[in-house]
């Protein structure tokens, strides 16, 4: 088992080490998230009732945009310097290496967002219970964003205007995660309980974790040709 997973672990380790040498990138994405969330009340007005109502959607959409920011750089640097070719020619499973990169991306871009979200939720006057549900929904949902995003990043690798194109391809596919994620808190406030939404979100996570690395690998092989 550990032999089978070793390329996966090596790939995660490598990308985390690289991220540690580029700390500014992590901080930038996080700061982007914080600033977008804080802009919303400024555009909408400080009415606490209204803010409480839009909080889940606002935090979710901001999280979605923040992960999008780092996705363009998920494969591009490795493609530019030839590392991706070496990975494609590795005797180990290319899919596992790609899965490792996706996990590393989530740890760097998704996890900090999840951790800071409750603090920002306080600014929107959310109750303790809502904050907890929001955090759980983000914890289940942000990996989905990284996984589906990886497919888009692989498809647009090395393509003209890849940044804007990536958003065009990926954002419609993010809709189910957004609906179930933000909906969990709203359903709870409406008295329906968050379980249904969270289970669907978890199911989506399992399905995308199973298929997305594989599809991304196929797309990367096409991009390398």
């Amino acid at each position: 088992m550990s032999r089978f997973l070793s390329p996966f672990i090596q790939s995660v380790r490598r990308d985390l080490l690289l991220a540690a040498r580029h700390k500014t990138e992590i901080v930038t994405a996080l700061f982007f998230f914080v600033i977008v969330v804080n802009l919303l009340p400024l555009g909408i007005g400080p009415d606490p009732d209204l803010l409480r109502k839009i909080a889940p959607g606002a935090l979710w959409i901001s999280a979605l945009l923040a992960t999008l920011l780092g996705l363009q750089r998920l494969f591009a640097p490795d493609h530019a310097d030839g590392t991706l070719e070496q990975m494609a020619l590795s005797p180990q499973s290319f899919t596992l290496l790609v899965a490792g990169k996706i996990l590393a991306h989530w740890l760097v871009a998704g996890l900090p967002v999840v951790l800071i979200a409750p603090v920002l939720g306080l600014q929107f006057d959310l109750s303790g219970r809502s904050l907890l549900i929001l955090t759980v929904s983000l914890l289940l949902g942000t990996p989905i964003l990284s996984l589906i995003g990886a497919v888009g990043a692989a498809l647009t690798l090395g393509v003209r205007g890849s940044g804007a194109l990536l958003s065009l391809l990926i954002l419609p596919l993010y809709i189910p995660a957004l609906i179930f994620g933000a909906g969990a808190v709203e359903a709870d406030l409406a008295g329906l309980g968050p379980d249904g939404h969270l289970s669907l979100l978890a199911a989506l996570l399992v399905v995308s974790a199973f298929f997305a690395p594989w599809v991304a690998t196929v797309a990367l092989r096409v991009a390398l040709e």
Partner: peptide, 10 residues
Amino acid sequence: LGFIALQAAI
């Protein structure tokens, strides 16, 4: 639109 844009960009 995404499909058309992707094909046009490659």
